[in-house]
């Protein structure tokens, strides 16, 4: 399948995503944020980093890059979009995903391994995971504290939009295992139609032989399985 990875000024995980997708035998194109040709991808990745230096609010300036208009059109036609870390922030600021990512509860940049529990393995991005599987995706962020109003949170739950929650290594979800203060331990969500995923943890940083369990591969494998079945 074909991935397109978007590079904004300040992106720093674009090549990690590119490399993982390539190593998994996919065609991958790097797209500059000023480009308006997405190169006909099956899935678009908005990578991690610090687009525009995180000025004003993380992701808000990138939201006005020319490529975003194309991504909105692509997503509205059912195209798969995945925003990782800063990519998640760009998706919420673009209005493609609900909620907002605020500064971490303890005001610190956190860079560490993090256990997540798979809450919904029925999405295009998670079908290769076992239900309630505990996985290790590293986190590296200061603004990853997911917040949404009460009504929005009810909607997310009702529509099974919560895909990943922060947990213990045993899959226990509680405030004790919440690294950043996210409401309801939310680490990753999809939109209502299930074709846009945003998550703070980095699957692409645990998708190599040398990077540990390699759990990130399961996410990429889900996407590739979904696209193969669709074609």
């Amino acid at each position: 399948m074909k991935y397109s990875v978007v590079t904004f000024p300040g992106s720093n995980c674009d090549h990690d995503s590119y490399y993982v997708a390539l190593k998994r035998n996919n065609e991958v194109n790097l797209i500059w944020h000023k480009d308006t040709d997405l190169k006909k991808p099956d899935a678009v990745i908005l990578p991690g980093g610090f687009s525009y230096g995180d000025y004003l609010r993380c992701g808000i300036i990138a939201r006005f890059s020319p490529v975003i208009k194309e991504i909105i059109t692509f997503a509205n036609k059912g195209g798969l979009v995945i925003g990782i870390c800063n990519g998640f922030q760009i998706l919420t600021e673009s209005g493609l995903l609900p909620g907002v990512l605020m500064m971490n509860r303890d005001l610190k940049f956190i860079c560490s391994h993090q256990f997540l529990r798979v809450e919904n393995n029925q999405t295009a991005f998670s079908s290769s995971f076992q239900d309630k599987q505990v996985i290790d995706f590293p986190i590296a962020h200061k603004e990853g504290n997911y917040f949404i109003g009460r009504k929005g949170l009810e909607d997310l739950k009702e529509n099974q939009q919560i895909v990943f929650r922060y947990s213990s290594s045993q899959g226990e979800v509680s405030e004790d295992y919440n690294p950043n203060g996210s409401i309801d331990n939310i680490a990753g969500i999809v939109n209502k139609t299930g074709n846009i995923l945003g998550l703070m943890p980095h699957p692409e940083r645990n998708a190599q032989d040398f990077s540990g369990s390699g759990d990130g591969n399961i996410l990429f494998s889900s996407i590739e399985k979904f696209i193969a079945a669709r074609v």
């Binding site: 609010r57 808000i60 006005f64 909620g99 907002v100 605020m102 917040f147 949404i148």
Partner: peptide
Amino acid sequence: KVLANPNT
């Protein structure tokens, strides 16, 4: 549109 995030 830009300066404030109406969510928060």
